[in-house]
Nucleic acid binder design. Structure first.
Lengths: 340, 340
DNA sequence: TTGAAAGCGGTACCAG
DNA sequence: CTGGTACCGCTTTCAA
């Protein structure tokens, strides 16, 4: 079943069938109707591979994320999809699971598909990636990682600023014993968040301990918190590298018979919708997923080729909700040299 | 940049390049090395469209879901992906957003890609879909909806049984005034769940009211609950059609100053991981996403062509956690004819 | 307005 | 073990 069959059945050439199917070129109404009728009857569905091959260029863009299960990545993806759809582009999605080998494999897949543009929204990186991508003329956007090149745009979030806001807030609440919950992808942006938190807090000479879960997610957040609290029962606050893990952290704390924020304050990062629905609602740092998605589309679809910035930095805002409160009295204002 | 370029550069034929790239046929080690070297140098990435076209058959299977944001769908997808990967298949994912037009469009996309198999895990249906799909020899699996055909297998969950278990449990707890939270996709499986809940409860002559949110999700669950409680302040229990919405329902109840389960019991459906992490942990009905994903793979990859059942029914189990408890005393055991 | 035919970039069969 | 080449199914000039 192909254009030839349709053409023969309709008594026209394949060129005409193609014109009808693509609403391209001028075709007499009667002819068009005849072709459409045959298409219906034969249930003809064009082979998209053949079409892409013949066309040479594609109307699809690739999106690669680290963990689509984490609503943070999902929402960026959604925003990109929305913008792309509006321009008539399809999205090809790939999930790396934080593996840099998988990241590389996904990039090859995208290139093999000859996507019109590529966005990598990942926490991990691969040493050969930039070199690989810099060779093409196709527009590329990296979120969080990567380096600038002629065809490569970077979108970054000032995690340092975000973490400083968060830490400053915790300090004002009297917290001096902080735990940090990260996950296995401790390179790139996740490391930045942890490092910034460490530095901000350490500046006051406070006690800071950190743990890395074996996975991003609810269960990962819970397990890391378990480890953290078992080893450091005196913590008054726990900062998680993202909201997704923070929800797990809160659950672990409650299961230990402690109250949030009365006994321990918890913070997330990203400001997910989920944070408003967990209990208590999560204090976090807002990262504008919608705006990021729109930016990615703008760059990839070249809507504004003239104003193409190659580096975009986002300054995130603190969002205070119910999961943070004053440090417990008996632990407030320890001396500078006090240790757990 | 194509096989011809590589072949010329390496001083071999395109056939040999192809053999090297696919590890197929016998190629002298020296020749192989020479070709690989050129491939590296030129950074040659085969055009996957051309490859698919030439091969005729594809090594990918299509998965269509209603709402990938809902962890229920996501987890089935994950399970299918895992099984497919193990057999060397790629997955093409499509999200319909509960739109039957989009469902149809997604199916066309899959067929256009000439997928080796197709799974539709949706709550919506399209009248022409079965007819469309029945024409191909490609294996198809429908979860929840659809009809059996030569090439079409159905996996279904006995929602009636699941809901009966849930309602029986609520009844034993003394609940007699139930609210049901559904969402806009009130056809197919979602309607089944609602209908089953209604019937189970009504059998005891109880008061049952229902609402349909405009969307599946946390916010949808919250809004529907708001509507429900505003109109029916006397409800002692709320049954949601899925866990995702139930989390939103719990939040709304708490925001109204009520306690779960002291004032109102809440139940979900699906038994998501998320249900263990929200507060209070959610009572639900378990649907085995992993097993469903495996079944789908078994059918699509024809691992067991002989034992191919065309209809599989799953009997779901009740999972009791902390979001349900005895009905408030002042409202227990109303007379059969009592109304709100 | 329509048709003939040359690609698009691989794969795989058939010879040698 | 290697090369020549006929496809795969659709798009897109170029002529008519």
């Amino acid at each position: 079943m192909n254009v030839v069959d349709v053409a023969r059945q309709a008594g026209v050439s394949t060129a005409t069938v193609s014109r009808v199917l693509n609403n391209a070129g001028a075709v007499k109404t009667a002819t068009r109707a005849r072709v459409m009728k045959v298409v219906e009857e034969l249930k003809f569905r064009p082979n998209l591979h053949a079409r892409s091959l013949a066309r040479g260029r594609s109307r699809s863009i690739g999106v690669i994320v680290s963990n689509i299960e984490n609503p943070f990545f999902f929402e960026i993806y959604k925003a990109v999809e929305k913008g792309a759809r509006a321009e008539g582009y399809e999205i090809i999605l790939a999930n790396t699971g934080y593996s840099s080998e998988q990241l590389m494999a996904s990039v090859w897949l995208m290139i093999g598909q000859r996507v019109a543009g590529l966005a990598a929204i990942t926490s991990e990186m691969h040493p050969e990636l930039i070199e690989e991508l810099a060779g093409y003329q196709m527009p590329v956007v990296f979120y969080d990682v990567g380096a600038q090149r002629r065809n490569i745009t970077n979108i970054r979030v000032n995690y340092r600023r975000g973490m400083e806001k968060l830490m400053g807030y915790l300090i004002r609440l009297g917290h001096r014993r902080l735990g940090i919950v990260g996950h296995h992808a401790m390179l790139g942006p996740i490391r930045d968040r942890v490092a910034a938190a460490l530095e901000s807090m350490s500046r006051y000479g406070e006690v800071v301990v950190k743990t890395a879960a074996d996975a991003d997610g609810l269960e990962g957040g819970r397990r890391a918190t378990r480890v953290l609290l078992s080893a450091n029962p005196g913590l008054t606050a726990i900062a998680c590298v993202n909201d997704f893990m923070a929800v797990g952290a809160i659950r672990e704390i409650r299961d230990r018979g402690l109250k949030v924020p009365r006994d321990i304050s918890v913070t997330g990062f990203d400001n997910l919708e989920l944070g408003k629905f967990c209990y208590p609602a999560l204090t976090s740092v807002h990262i504008p997923r919608d705006r990021i998605g729109e930016m990615i589309c703008d760059v990839l679809l070249q809507k504004d080729r003239t104003r193409a910035e190659h580096k975009i930095v986002i300054d995130p805002e603190l969002v205070v909700r119910d999961s943070t409160g004053p440090a417990p009295n008996d632990l407030r204002r320890p001396t500078r040299n006090e240790r757990l």
